[in-house]
Design a protein around this nucleic acid. Structure first.
Lengths: 121, 121
DNA sequence: TCATTTACTTACATTTTTTATAGTACCTTA
DNA sequence: TAAGGTACTATAAAAAATGTAAGTAAATGA
């Protein structure tokens, strides 16, 4: 787990910003490299660790683990472990996680539009 | 300007993700530590460099410059330099930049709600 | 006994982002 | 002549994020 240095200026700045600005608070949570994309896939329903890995071809197991752990910590996803061998672990969005759907959808639309504009100029 | 190493795996991953997922594309653009907050302030109208610096008490001049340059590069903000001494530079959102407003507003609402949930449990 | 499967974990290396500190140019005003 | 204000730039360092490679446990089937 990537430990954050709680004495760093960066940590203090993030805290202060998040305290004042809910959008910065939100960005800290969903801001990793893969978090939004993981959520996007989970909007369609539960997925196993291995399934997610296949859907995100370039992600390493380490990064997938880290991102899922972070999302779990913030209660965006729920992790269910089945006592089987080989192990089976399923990930699904929580209620608050699912509420990201319209936001991500809008972000997608904005991104597509922005790319179009940039491509033309 | 922070140069990106175009031979790194990280660069390739970001590219590939952004190509396929508009939300990842968007996240790359507005994903910096201060970008969203800068945009938030600019929704209310033009601001000078020094005004932004005062509104973001902990930001360094370097970071503010970097973030503004990035936002300018992606046509989110427009930079206007007045040929005066001492210099005056104004920043304002472009049309596509302004279209982030509803998204950021929703993010704020989501963030506030998430924080509330986390505080209670 | 041995390989197989799955979801990790660990140690380490590299890359990217953020912070720190000290400058600079320019004209105006004192 | 000197100080002051504005929006920066240069350089270095610290911190954070991401990537690489290898290893682990535990039951099952061969």
């Amino acid at each position: 787990m990537s430990k954050i240095k709680e004495t760093s200026t960066n940590f203090a700045n993030k805290q202060a910003l998040a305290d004042e600005c809910p959008e910065a608070y939100a960005a800290n949570i969903i801001g990793g490299q893969w978090a939004l994309v993981i959520c996007s896939w989970l909007f369609n329903g539960k997925l196993r660790f291995g399934e997610l890995r296949k859907l995100l071809p370039n992600i390493t197991e380490r990064m997938l683990t880290l991102q899922l752990r972070k999302l779990e910590e913030y209660k965006i996803v729920k992790r269910t472990v089945y006592a089987e061998v080989p192990p089976r672990v399923e990930y699904e969005l929580t209620a608050i996680g699912y509420e990201l759907k319209p936001i991500i959808k809008q972000l997608e639309e904005w991104g597509a539009k922005h790319r179009e504009l940039s491509g033309e100029s």
